[in-house]
Design a protein around this nucleic acid. Structure first.
Lengths: 204, 204
DNA sequence: ACATTTGTTAACCATTTGGTTTAACCTTCA
DNA sequence: TGAAGGTTAAACCAAATGGTTAACAAATGT
């Protein structure tokens, strides 16, 4: 009963294994054999299901990106106020990434390696835009709720403050001379610290 | 007259070429042959002067890191006020990186790939600490110059806001739908925007 | 029961890659 | 001038790597 079709299992196992290896080592650093070992199957299976390293990688990447996109959509396109958005996004995003620590670095690393591939993603995926967020910021500034600030810059600030510490975690651990446990605590504190920091800066 | 010893030239050319290739493609993506071609010399020369890919890479990495360290030292250890530090660092750092766009991503990428190697750097290099910055923040908070904030978190915020946009430039170009020129302008605006954003948040 | 498709493996292959060797080529200086 | 030692290139090598093949096993449909 527990076994669905064998094929389904294998294909899924490959994707899980590939995700793990690609996210840890990147496209160039990953080895097909290592992915096969991780999945506990023969290397030929990788090609049977995904044809090439490139296609397997793209499956993993799209998958990862699809996980991230909704998080961003929320801050860009839901109907709460900017202040609420900042609070929610900061809290949710940090919780989310704590569960997927390799994700941001993976996305950024591979995006830098091959910007053209990213262009492809951008067209295929329903890619979030800044339009609504921008006009919302402009409106709240006009209404005197926020101090004058450009929506684009605010958006960049928000994602910078939230994402960068994860991307640069080894650097931060180095500077602050903390270990994994200390880093976890730091990140936990940041859920409030980042939110306060941003609100302090923009709220009139 | 213009020619110093041939050897000096070659060794230097190799380092310049290796810097370019490694920073663009990372350790795993870079090929020794490609570096040799870039330097316009025979591949055997790379090994003659640097013995192995790993050692050549380490030379490039240390070199890059040594470029970045003084920038950070300034904000951590000079004698200006926090407000001045924020303003200066933001302005200087953005100008600096505009000239070395691959640098932050290179450092972060390779640091994630091999944290142990980073530990080595941390011991060899005179590695900046946060101690002075921390107590300075605490003092200015106590004096009522700054709103209450933790020095560590403030430090992370400052570097996040300054560095992240460069690390994630393809992502940002994607979201904002801008090209290289637009990105340059955006970064130019950020020299003031980031500084204002931080000061707004922490100044009482 | 049998044929056909689908899934899986071990062995194999061509190419790439980091690294080595060998021999030639300068430069220096006695 | 010619021996010595540093410098350079061409050819070479072994290992690793992405990908293929051919044969076999397991389902699946008739």
């Amino acid at each position: 009963m527990s076994s669905t079709k064998k094929s389904q299992d294998t294909e899924g196992q490959i994707l899980v294994a590939a995700k793990k290896i690609f996210q840890k080592k990147g496209m160039d650093g990953a080895r097909m054999q290592e992915i096969a070992d991780e999945a506990g199957i023969n290397k030929a299976m990788l090609h049977y299901y995904y044809r090439s390293k490139q296609l397997l990688f793209e499956a993993v990447f799209s998958n990862a990106f699809a996980l991230l996109a909704p998080q961003l959509n929320k801050i860009l396109n839901d109907d709460s106020t900017i202040e609420e958005k900042v609070k929610n996004f900061t809290h949710n995003y940090i919780s989310f990434i704590a569960k997927h620590p390799y994700l941001p670095n993976f996305i950024i690393q591979e995006m830098n390696r091959n910007p053209k591939f990213f262009d492809k993603i951008q067209q295929n995926t329903a890619f979030p835009t800044l339009d609504k967020f921008n006009s919302q910021v402009a409106l709240e500034v006009e209404q005197g709720i926020l101090k004058p600030i450009d929506g684009k810059q605010l958006f960049i600030n928000i994602i910078s403050l939230n994402i960068f510490p994860f991307v640069a975690s080894p650097l931060i651990k180095g500077f602050l001379r903390i270990d994994d446990k200390g880093f976890k605590e730091l990140v936990e504190e940041r859920k409030k610290a980042v939110s306060d920091f941003i609100i302090n800066s923009i709220k009139k």
